[in-house]
Amino acid sequence: MLRNGGKKNDDPMKQKKDLLVMWLLLLTASGFSQKTDMVLIPDGNFVPFIKGQTTSIKVQSFWMDENPVTNAEFIAFVIANPQWKPENVKSIFADKDYLSHWKDTIVNSNTISGEKFPVVNVSWFAANDYCKSVGKRLPTMYEWEYAGASLPEGSNDNKILNELITRWYSRQNTGLSNVGSIYRNQFGVWDMYGQIWEWVYDFNSISSNEDSRNKEEIPEGFFCGSAALNASDASDYVTFIRYAFRSSLKGEYTVRKLGFRCAKNVESED
């Protein structure tokens, strides 16, 4: 576990925070944080995007959350783990925008809009700790990409998924909506695309490549000019965007459209 802050509660924002805590308690009491369903993703083969691994690799079967983690679920986590309250969190584990959307949507209004929206503005450390707190883990990048490649239910044309993603990328950022409202894929997982980006456990593995351990330095420019040299399919621009996004992140970063979902090994299921 991460070192608990244990800060004194004497700051001027205290009143506001007490209000937040009250709301949070109310939320848990009223059963907003229901148990999250998981979906068994069958094992299968998958061709990673990075060159050097152009042959497909096998992804073992694993459990994945049906939906991204919601505000309501994350509120319950924060109550149980006060070191993850915005006022306690250490800057090395989450930047200043951590959960900043709660101020507007939850504390300052009497109606709790967005409790079923995916939680955003969370750092990798927070997401990682959340998953551990519920006996799960963050999915690996390969797991996420493999699950995300599944086509929407009822379709058998790759183009449909590509169009869905393109449309999302190429429209101006719109507000969030409840989880489970965009599309369900053939594994039964909701909204892999169309709402938010999602953290993966090994998001910082992507600027590595096979050559680096032998001769050359790791090209920092993997997602700049030299990108096309290293990708397995240079025209797969929707994937490029996702990998570029991950490479722009640091562990403490929080972003308005970045959330997460958890995964779990099959053998750890009892």
């Binding site: 920092e220 420019g221 700049c224 000019g225 996004f245 722009s248 970063y253 929080t254 972003v255 308005r256």
Partner: peptide, 14 residues
């Protein structure tokens, strides 16, 4: 290198 590109890759909000 990269005309500044390497030094300036940033996520939204950064």
């Amino acid at each position: 290198p990269g005309g500044g590109a390497e030094a300036s890759l940033i996520a939204p909000g950064k």
